[in-house]
Simulated scan of single mutants.
Amino acid sequence: MNTQQNINYQRIAEAINYIKLNFKDQPNLDEVAEKVNLSPFHFQRLFTDWAGISPKKFLQYLSLDYAKGILKDKQATLFDTAFKTGLSGTGRLHDLFMNIEGMTPAEYKNGGRELAINYSFAESPFGDIIVASTPKGICYMAFADAREEAFNNLQAQFPNASYTQMVDVQQQNALFIFTKDWSQLSNIKLHLKGTDFQLKVWEALLNIPMGGLYTYSSLAAAISRPTASRAVGSAVGDNPVAFLIPCHRVIKATGEFGQYHWGATRKSAIIGWEAAKVNL
């Protein structure tokens, strides 16, 4: 690491430590930049390059994690949580949870208790799958080699939701993806819970055409985060909607297909199946 790189690293380390110690005061960009003797513009760019996220997003993640800890105490009110986290009111707490978690603070506190989820099992060219939906759209889809285990994994995503085993229109539209053209994907609604970064990666996955393959670095470049290949890989691995969000189309830079949450052999079969369909 050369001298300038070392200086930059020390500045970012100092900024991270400052935000961690003072997040309850919700310091703004100008304040943190001043602490490390940089202009707000230069600090914003430098922090994002080194940390992989913006200073504002880093502050939000710290605030969210702290708020989650408070909400685990079932006696804590939303007002108390907002106040203790340094937020100006419950409205900002609501926005924080919706922007990052995709759910309200009350829904998080209740563990999804107010969420009604329909689920069903179906056959696919690559084995049985479980598909689950809310009134907003598909929230989960996974290959189900063992049905009981598959349902347990679904419950782990939404531990306090109510479940009904039934097929609905949302699921039917999703299952058509195995027999219809991928260009009709816009007809399928998704109800996803994830960070802004994860949602951005999953959206980029949806843009990979059938039969196409991306590397992790090319996917990172597609979301304008060329240095975040490792973080992109983690987001790909956290994809909650198998096949429909085509994380199987991401391979290693060496050309190897690599691992897949539902098995490397299944990933190879899917890639080959899609290539054959494109070349018909």
Rank of each mutant, 00 (worst) to 15 (best):
G137M: 06
P55W: 04
G112P: 00
T81G: 00
V167L: 14
Y108K: 03
K84V: 00
N110Y: 05
E123M: 11
M141R: 06
G86D: 07
V232H: 03
Y216S: 06
M141N: 00
F47D: 03
I271Y: 06
A235V: 07
K56D: 10
T265A: 15
F126C: 11
L244I: 14
N239G: 04
E123G: 12
A33K: 02
P55S: 12
V131A: 02
G112S: 06
A13I: 07
N153G: 03
I223V: 09
E14V: 00
A15D: 06
K24A: 04
N279L: 12
G237E: 11
V131I: 15
T81E: 02
M103P: 01
T85S: 13
K277E: 10
Y216Q: 04
Q259L: 10
F243S: 04
I251P: 00
D73T: 05
L199S: 05
G212E: 14
P105Q: 07
H94S: 08
S63F: 03
H191Y: 12
Q184N: 12
T254M: 09
S268V: 13
Q5H: 10
I19Q: 00
N22C: 09
I7W: 06
N239T: 13
A220Y: 04
G237N: 15
G258C: 08
P209I: 08
E148P: 03
P27L: 09
D181W: 08
R147G: 03
F79S: 10
A276D: 09
G52S: 11
D238A: 15
R11Q: 15
V32K: 04
T164E: 15
K20V: 01
N152M: 13
A132Y: 02
A122V: 05
A228W: 03
V169M: 12
S63T: 15
L78G: 02
F43A: 07
H248K: 07
T195F: 08
A132R: 01
K193F: 09
A242R: 00
L62K: 11
G258W: 05
T48Q: 14
L280W: 05
F176S: 08
S54Q: 10
P55Y: 05
K74W: 06
S54T: 15
I245A: 01
M166D: 09
A51N: 11
H94Q: 14
N239D: 13
F23P: 01
S124H: 08
N22E: 12
A106T: 04
E31P: 00
E34H: 14
P125G: 09
I245Y: 00
L21Y: 09
